[in-house]
């Protein structure tokens, strides 16, 4: 098994075990979506009109919650230094970690989202757009998040700093993602999905390099 696949498998195993970050993210996602109608009222029309935005924002927040452990746990116990000594380049490490994070956070969130959309009375016509937009947008969240976590890896309590750094950078994802779902309610196509795909298409290949540069400066003394 190549070093890349081994790291990928290890990270997935760690996240997927009981109490791991995958369950945590799903639980958080579901809790935010459940809490919302309790806060703003349960009128079906009102919920339907904000469902797209709520699902997208809850997905971003759930991602944020798990992101801060992406490199930090391995940095703190020294495994990141060991990985850096392995034949796998830092770029490869970052790539494997991004992929593992998406497979254990973005993908399960996407799969769970239709269920939660039912609770929010999302119109039936919008389900395909919801799935496609989350499937396209969540990898970009993992990618940008990886860059930000790599930058803050030496910071204790970096989890508090992370949202401030990441959220402005993630606005395009939220706008295009939720915008796509909103338009699809009326059976419209507004091109949002293409912008989202373009954003992910640019972010994904670049992020391992930027994240690796950030890791490199943080690992060197």
């Amino acid at each position: 098994m190549s070093a890349f696949a081994a790291l990928l498998a290890r990270d997935i195993r760690l996240a997927a075990r009981a109490g791991g970050s995958a369950m945590l993210a799903l639980g958080f996602f579901a809790a935010v979506v459940t809490l919302l109608p309790l806060g703003i009222g349960s009128e079906a029309r009102l919920l339907a009109s904000i469902a797209a935005g709520v699902l997208w924002i809850a997905a971003v927040l759930a991602n944020l919650l798990t992101l801060d452990r992406l490199f930090q746990a391995d940095y703190e116990d020294g495994s990141l230094d060991l990985f850096a000594l392995s034949p796998l380049s830092l770029e490869g490490i970052a790539g494997a970690k991004i992929m593992a994070h998406w497979l254990t956070t973005g993908l399960p969130l996407t799969i769970l989202s239709p269920l939660l959309a039912v609770l929010l009375h999302l119109p039936a016509a919008a389900y395909p757009a919801l799935l496609v937009s989350l499937l396209t947008g969540t990898p970009a969240i993992s990618a940008i998040g990886a860059v930000a976590t790599a930058l803050t890896v030496t910071v204790r309590r970096g989890g508090l700093l992370l949202p401030l750094i990441v959220l402005p950078l993630l606005t395009p994802v939220v706008i295009f993602g939720a915008g796509t779902v909103l338009a699809s309610i009326d059976g419209l196509q507004n091109g949002g999905i293409w912008f989202l795909a373009a954003f992910a298409g640019v972010t994904l290949p670049l992020s391992p390099f930027v994240a690796a540069a950030a890791l490199r400066l943080n690992l060197s003394e």
Binding site: V147, L151, L169, P172, I175, F176, A214
Partner: peptide, 25 residues
């Protein structure tokens, strides 16, 4: 300094995209 510099560069690349997305929105 290095970490902040990387963030600034990521930000400046993102700024036009953010502006475009907000305009679109």
């Amino acid at each position: 300094a290095r970490a902040a510099a990387i963030l600034a560069l990521v930000g400046v690349v993102n700024l036009p995209i953010i502006q475009f997305s907000v305009q679109w929105w």
